[in-house]
């Protein structure tokens, strides 16, 4: 009887342990990096991907067509609304939002994984950036967030409510090593 109980306890502990082990999340290359709001954060992500040795393509305002996404296995959208960036692209935030929603819908159809990244921190939070975040989270497979962008807990809540894995980092340059881990 004692033996059975011991086996049962060990089995339970093993199952419990496995359930709590952090899953290794991996994404596949090639990666398409685009902007979600035309801030310079997407460009920083491109530089980080380049220095991290990731197989990527960077198109800041890629047109949302199945053909444009066909070659990619992961889509990284760097969220950050910039009036100057949107102005330079000759669009407003609603036009940008429309492009992004079409893009993530195509990604879902094509089974392309989506990483939502906020790498510019608190200074790039605001109503326009949040509007973009809210519109895209249902399509996200992973959240990559600079810690000070989550001072109000917005990204933590999204992660918990929608069961999306989240990774925080302190400095923008930390993203380089995180990308290396994600794209094993």
């Amino acid at each position: 009887m004692k033996k059975i109980l011991l086996i049962l306890i060990i089995s339970l502990l093993t199952v419990f342990g496995l359930a709590n082990e952090e899953k290794t999340i991996a994404f596949e290359e090639p990666v398409l990096i685009t902007s979600g709001g035309q801030s310079p954060g997407a460009l920083q992500m491109m530089v980080l991907a380049k220095t991290g040795g990731i197989n990527y393509e960077f198109v800041k305002d890629i047109e949302p067509t199945a053909e444009n996404l066909a070659a990619f296995k992961t889509l990284i959208i760097v969220i950050g609304a910039s009036g100057k960036g949107l102005g330079a692209a000759g669009i407003d935030v609603d036009t940008e939002l429309e492009r992004l929603v079409q893009l993530v819908n195509i990604a879902e159809e094509k089974e392309i994984k989506v990483i939502l990244a906020q790498i510019e921190g608190a200074t790039r939070r605001g109503s326009s950036s949040d509007k973009i975040t809210d519109a895209l989270t249902d399509f996200a497979d992973y959240l990559l967030i600079k810690s000070d962008a989550d001072e109000d807990g917005k990204f933590t809540s999204i992660s918990e409510e929608k069961k999306i894995p989240i990774r925080f980092f302190e400095k923008t340059s930390d993203v380089k090593d995180i990308l290396k881990e994600l794209f094993l």
């Binding site: 801030s39 310079p40 954060g41 920083q44 530089v47 910039s82 100057k84 960036g85 330079a88 923008t172």
Partner: peptide, 27 residues
């Protein structure tokens, strides 16, 4: 100079002076 600026800003953050990168307005 955006790419050059992007790296410079990250290096400033690494040395303890975080800066924001901004694109010059065309308007």
């Amino acid at each position: 100079g955006l790419e050059l600026g992007a790296i410079s800003v990250m290096e400033m953050e690494d040395m303890g002076i975080p800066m924001k990168l901004e694109e010059s307005s065309v308007e």
